[in-house]
Amino acid sequence: MKIEILGTGCTKCNKTKEIVEKALLENGVDAEVVKVEDFDSIISYGVMITPAVVVDGEVKIAGRVPGVNDVKKWIS
């Protein structure tokens, strides 16, 4: 599983990464977590507001920090 955190390195983007990693740890799921900060890659997903989370190529949320339980649903 590949999880991409789309954002410019702002507070909410960093928080999103923390939450994703927490959910992975709590569920015992192994995944590759990648921060994506360059404009071209972000826009390629059609994302217009960040932070955003992409799980295996599908955008799950944009413009908001997800909850841990949200992430757990995406990775289960």
């Binding site: 997903y45 059609g46 994302v47 507001i49 944009a62 413009g63």
Partner: peptide, 11 residues
């Protein structure tokens, strides 16, 4: 398109 739909939902 998921990125665009989710961006709208995030508004």
């Amino acid at each position: 398109r998921s990125g665009i739909v989710k961006s709208a939902e995030g508004c």
